[in-house]
C-alpha cells in the first residue's frame, strides 16, 4: 500500500523544496539584522564542493563531509562578515555578490582539484548511502513494501524534513530570544542599538555567519541529492533566486521563507502543462507581488492576525519590530 503511494517524482520535488527552504532561511537570518547578502550562492558552493571533494576523493563519511562543508562555509562567513561590517544596503549586496563570483571563478580555475567547469560527478547519493548502511544490519526496504528506489527517496525526504523542522524551530525560537531581539534592534537602528549596549559587531557577524552556514548546509545537501555539481550551479543567478524565496514569501518572519521557497519551487512544476509560458507567469507574479505587497506574502501583521483568530492574546512586547 505504501509502495503505491510513494512516487519518487513528488519526493524529489519535495526534497528540492526543503533544500530551498534552508536557502530561504539563510537569507532570512541575515536580513533579520538588516544585512542584504547576495553571497548565498558562494557559500552554497563552498559547502557543496567541500563535501563533494572529501567524500569522492577521500571516502570520508557523508556526515563528516557535510559538517565540514557547513563549518567551512561558516568560517568564510566570518571572514567575509567582518570586513563587510562597514557596508550596508546595496553596497553590502554588491560586496557579497563579488564574494560569490570569486568563489565560482576560483573553482573554475583550480582545475587540478575541482575539474573546473566540467564539475564533479559521482558524488555519493544520500539515500543510497543510508540504504547501504541499513542493508548491512539486515534491513530490507521490502519490509515496508517499498522498492529500493522508492525507499531512498523517502529516506532523503524524511531526513531533509527533520533537518528543516529542527532549523525552523531553532530560528523561530531565536527570533524571540536575546539574540533575535538584538538582531531586530540592529535592523531598526544600529546606533540606537549600540547605545543600548548591544554589541553590534558581534551580532552582525553572528547573523551573517548563521546565514553562511545555512547556505553551506543547503549546498552540501544539494551535492548529495544531485550527485553532480558544477560551477554553473552557483552563479549570481542562483543568488538572486535564493533572495527571491525569502523576499517573495516575506522576509520578516520565518514562515515567509518557508512559504516563498515552497511556492516558488512548486509553481514551475505545477505549470508544466503550459511549459513555454510557465516562466512568464513566474515573472508576472513576482512583479505584481512586489508592486502590491512589497513586504512579501506573509508578514508580521498576517502572523498576528492568525494568532488573534486563535483567540490568544499576544504577549506584550514580543512583536516589537
Amino acid at each position: 500500500m505504501l509502495g503505491e503511494l510513494i512516487n519518487p517524482y513528488y519526493l524529489q520535488v519535495a526534497s528540492f523544496i526543503l533544500i530551498n527552504i534552508i536557502l530561504g532561511l539563510s537569507i532570512y537570518v541575515t536580513l533579520a539584522s538588516g544585512q542584504l547578502s547576495l553571497g548565498s550562492a558562494g557559500f552554497m558552493a563552498v559547502g557543496a564542493y567541500t563535501t563533494a571533494l572529501l567524500t569522492t576523493n577521500f571516502e570520508v563519511p557523508l556526515l563528516v563531509g557535510i559538517l565540514a562543508g557547513v563549518m567551512l562555509a561558516g568560517i568564510f562567513g566570518i571572514i567575509v562578515g567582518i570586513p563587510s561590517l562597514r557596508l550596508r544596503g546595496v553596497f553590502l549586496a554588491i560586496a557579497t555578490l563579488g564574494f560569490g563570483e570569486i568563489v565560482r571563478v576560483f573553482i573554475v580555475n583550480t582545475e587540478s582539484l575541482t575539474k573546473g567547469a566540467i564539475g564533479i560527478s559521482g558524488i555519493p547519493q544520500l539515500g543510497r548511502e543510508i540504504l547501504d548502511k541499513l542493508e548491512v544490519i539486515g534491513f530490507d526496504p521490502e519490509i515496508l513494501g517499498l522498492k529500493a528506489n522508492q525507499f531512498t527517496f523517502l529516506i532523503v525526504f524524511i531526513l531533509l524534513l527533520i533537518i528543516v523542522i529542527v532549523l525552523v524551530c531553532f530560528f523561530s525560537r531565536q527570533k524571540n530570544s536575546r539574540v533575535g531581539r538584538a538582531f531586530s534592534a540592529i535592523n531598526m537602528d544600529e546606533q540606537a542599538a549600540a547605545s543600548m549596549g548591544i554589541n553590534v559587531t558581534y551580532y552582525k557577524v553572528l547573523s551573517f555567519t548563521q546565514g553562511a552556514m545555512l547556505a553551506g548546509l543547503a549546498g552540501a545537501l544539494y551535492a548529495h541529492v544531485l550527485s553532480y555539481i558544477s560551477p554553473a550551479d552557483f552563479t549570481y543567478h542562483k543568488a538572486v533566486e535564493i533572495l527571491t524565496f525569502s523576499v517573495f514569501g516575506g522576509s520578516e518572519v520565518v514562515g515567509g521563507a518557508i512559504f516563498g521557497a515552497t511556492f516558488l519551487t512548486l509553481l514551475p512544476e505545477t505549470l508544466r502543462a503550459i511549459s513555454e509560458y510557465r516562466y512568464m507567469i513566474y515573472g508576472i507574479l513576482l512583479v505584481v507581488m512586489m508592486a502590491y505587497r512589497p513586504q512579501g506574502v506573509i508578514d508580521e501583521q498576517m502572523m498576528r492576525w492568525f494568532k488573534r483568530r486563535k483567540g490568544r492574546r499576544q504577549q506584550h512586547g514580543t512583536e516589537n519590530k
Binding site: C169, S172, R173, N176, G255, I258, M303, F306, R312
Partner: peptide, 10 residues
C-alpha cells in the same frame, strides 16, 4: 504559540 504555528504549517 510559535511552535504550534509551525507544527500546523509543517
Amino acid at each position: 504559540l510559535n511552535f504550534r504555528m509551525f507544527a500546523t504549517i509543517a
